[in-house]
């Protein structure tokens, strides 16, 4: 009897400490974002004078002005374009390569695969200079294509890692049966491997979409025309060029954040899986 109460006492201590730790951590994490959101409905003067106060009345002026001055509509469309095509191309290329590397049994696959894995260590900055020079020579600098190609190239290593390790786990019997029935390899890829890969494909799509949406440096360095820049780059330029009006700035930041918050609400679990996937041993 006394043993059990002792144990409960110990556990109560753990629980109290845990609640305090969690509550503080969560408050510090969400607090700044919450403050940003409600402050964006206050005019600049109010943000400066009553830093913490809730808006007295919801002031939408920041939003309409930020939307117009920053041309945020166009930036959002560009971001959607880059993220959508960058993601689709990367994921399907990676699934194809993953099938090749995992199931064909060619020795060259090991080389290719090791090459791609090494790419995980390469930062975008290590290739900016040559990439910039190459794109200038090929006349694709400052074009949408010139942005999309590096997006795909840098997305591939991790996506190929995810695809290959998943496809390795698919039993070969499925494939062999189809081969005996006379199906070609490409048919097998499309009719068998692709559907079986649906769970990992979902994780890949969502993870790649988030990375592409938040990508900054390629668009920043490889483009100069406002019409083809993405949301993060546009917001960065917009904020830099503006007189310090925190109201406008906050409205622009909230607009830039909303799409991904919605995305997070719908795809939370897949997104977390993507982040954890690199560390899980199958």
């Amino acid at each position: 009897m006394s043993d059990i109460t002792l144990k409960n006492k110990e556990l109560v201590g753990w629980r109290i400490a845990s609640y305090i730790f969690m509550a503080i951590f969560t408050l510090l994490t969400v607090g700044p974002l919450f403050w940003l959101t409600y402050s964006s409905f206050k005019p600049h003067a109010d943000i400066m004078q009553q830093t913490f106060a809730f808006p007295r009345a919801f002031f939408f002026g920041n939003y309409t002005r930020a939307w117009e001055i920053g041309k945020l509509g166009g930036l959002i469309l560009n971001s959607i374009f880059y993220s959508f095509f960058g993601t689709i191309i990367t994921v399907y290329l990676a699934l194809g390569a993953g099938y090749g590397f995992a199931k064909f049994g060619y020795r060259v696959s090991n080389w290719f695969y090791a090459f791609f894995i090494m790419g995980l260590l390469i930062t975008a900055h290590s290739v900016l200079v040559p990439l910039f020079v190459m794109e200038t020579r090929l006349n694709i600098d400052d074009t949408r294509l010139g942005v999309l190609i590096p997006y795909v190239g840098f997305g591939l290593p991790f996506m190929i890692y995810l695809a290959t390790s998943y496809i390795k786990g698919i039993p070969s019997s499925l494939e062999e049966a189809a081969l005996i029935d006379g199906a070609g390899y490409l048919q097998i890829f499309w009719r068998i491997i692709r559907p079986v890969c649906q769970p990992v494909t979902a994780t890949m799509l969502i993870f790649a979409f988030l990375s592409n949406w938040n990508e900054f440096v390629f668009v920043f360095v490889l483009t100069s025309r406002q019409e083809i820049r993405s949301l993060p780059v546009g917001v960065n330029a917009f904020v830099g060029g503006l007189s310090r009006d925190f109201g406008l700035l906050f409205a622009a930041l909230v607009i830039a954040t909303i799409p991904m918050i919605l995305f997070y609400i719908f795809f939370r679990d897949q997104l977390m899986k993507g982040f954890a996937a690199g560390s899980l041993k199958e």
Partner: peptide, 21 residues
Amino acid sequence: SYALLTLPSVFIYALVIVFPV
């Protein structure tokens, strides 16, 4: 089939990462 499945990725990767490095 192998070439068709893997070479596009290898090509883009070589173009964007290997060659520039």
